[in-house]
């Protein structure tokens, strides 16, 4: 497989769980692939893998096998289409939640090598601000934070931003509002977090866009289908296509 001149590493993260992070990661991966890019979707939820469930895949080997040296990294990637590969994590392996320093270094090297084969490496992290979440956020070039207008989602997203800025000196974050009511509500939520982040942390929060609340999407998720394929005309699918275009326009490495 050819090597890419410049791979963009992004992670999709949220602070709070249940904001539709994995669903967005899967759908935006398809959207970027639709634009002709080679995309790798990495399931960074090492403790409770779910990208494979969401995509209806059955996998035999995973990140854990690679770390233990039993699998060739590229062979572990499941290609759902020619230019879209998934690197599944393992389900229910609790010790993966807290990787030791050696495994962290190996994981970094391994992912870097793998990512080189693609235009985009998207990482779907676990919820919360645990060690693996921080690790993936530190690893990537762009940090995409998904949140809902719900106040707890807002404060959890801010807590994540604060931790990343204080501990890893990250100073720029891309924000996506999921399950947004209307454009105004979405914008209001965004302005709040942007203002507070600027005032208290002196970091930049950039508004990438919003995904409207869409019942059809919830149905698709339950049926384990990426809505961008099964419901291409839905508002949510269109929003994800727009977001993919925004992601394309992000700089390579800051």
């Amino acid at each position: 497989m050819r090597k890419r001149a410049e791979t963009r590493k992004l992670c999709i993260t949220s602070g709070k769980g249940g904001v539709g992070k994995t669903s967005f990661a899967v759908n935006v991966a398809y959207a970027l692939a639709d634009k002709g890019h080679h995309v790798l979707l990495i399931d960074g939820d090492l403790g409770l893998a779910n990208v494979d469930i969401l995509m209806g895949l059955s996998v035999t080997s995973n990140v854990r096998h690679i770390l233990e040296g039993d699998s060739d990294p590229l062979e572990t990637v499941v290609f759902v289409q020619e230019n879209l590969g998934i690197l599944p994590a393992s389900s229910g392996v609790p010790e993966m939640v807290t990787l030791g320093p050696e495994d962290q270094t190996r994981l970094g090297r391994l992912l870097e090598e793998l990512a080189n084969h693609f235009d985009y490496a998207l990482m779907d992290t676990a919820a919360g601000i645990g060690p693996s979440v921080l690790w993936f956020n530190n690893f990537v070039d762009h940090n995409i934070i998904l949140l809902t207008p719900d106040p707890t989602s807002l404060t959890d997203a801010y807590a994540l931003i604060k931790t990343l800025s204080r501990e890893f000196h990250k100073d720029r974050f891309q924000l996506i509002l999921n399950f947004a009511g209307d454009e105004e509500e979405a914008h209001q939520t965004f302005v709040r977090i942007q203002t507070v982040a600027k005032k208290f942390l002196d970091v930049e929060v950039v508004y990438l866009g919003a995904i409207p609340d869409d019942e059809a999407v919830n149905t698709a998720v339950r049926r384990q289908l990426p809505f961008i394929q099964s419901l291409p005309d839905s508002k949510a699918a269109q929003a994800v296509h727009l977001l993919a275009a925004k992601i394309e326009s992000l700089n390579g490495v800051e």
């Binding site: 106040p151 807002l154 404060t155 801010y158 807590a159 604060k162 931790t163 204080r166 501990e167 209001q188 709040r192 977090i193 203002t195 507070v196 600027k198 005032k199 208290f200 002196d202």
Partner: peptide, 25 residues
């Protein structure tokens, strides 16, 4: 406290009212 969300931050997040005082860097 360095990474903890403090009361004033929480308040500004939920109720708004914070303003960008040091606009531009």
């Amino acid at each position: 406290v360095s990474t903890e969300v403090m009361a004033d931050e929480r308040e500004a997040l939920i109720w708004g009212g914070g303003t960008v005082e040091n606009g531009g860097r």
